[in-house]
């Protein structure tokens, strides 16, 4: 049970991280015209963060030992 609670807490931390990264004011930093690798900055940022969050959750879930 303890391990399960730790997993839950890690996931909740990912949730909080996502809440911060997907909202004002951080999002405003990338909300400007301009491209990186030919992709609009905001589009790249949102999908990048999204992929990272999913990766973190997958890592947390699939590598737990219970």
């Amino acid at each position: 049970m303890n391990r399960a609670i730790i997993t839950g807490q890690r996931l909740a931390a990912v949730f909080l991280l996502g809440c911060v990264l997907f909202n004002y004011p951080l999002i405003a930093l990338f909300n400007k015209p301009g491209e990186l690798f030919d992709i609009p900055l905001l589009y790249l940022y949102l999908f990048g963060v999204w992929a990272v969050l999913i990766g973190l959750m997958a890592l947390t879930i699939e590598r737990r030992k219970d």
Binding site: G8, L11, G18, F22, Y43, L46, W50
Partner: peptide, 18 residues
């Protein structure tokens, strides 16, 4: 890009599903 929040919300919520 305003269509995205509707899918970002569920992603975030999934973190609390546990």
């Amino acid at each position: 890009i305003g269509f995205l929040p509707i899918y970002l919300g569920p992603t975030l919520m999934a973190g609390l599903w546990w």
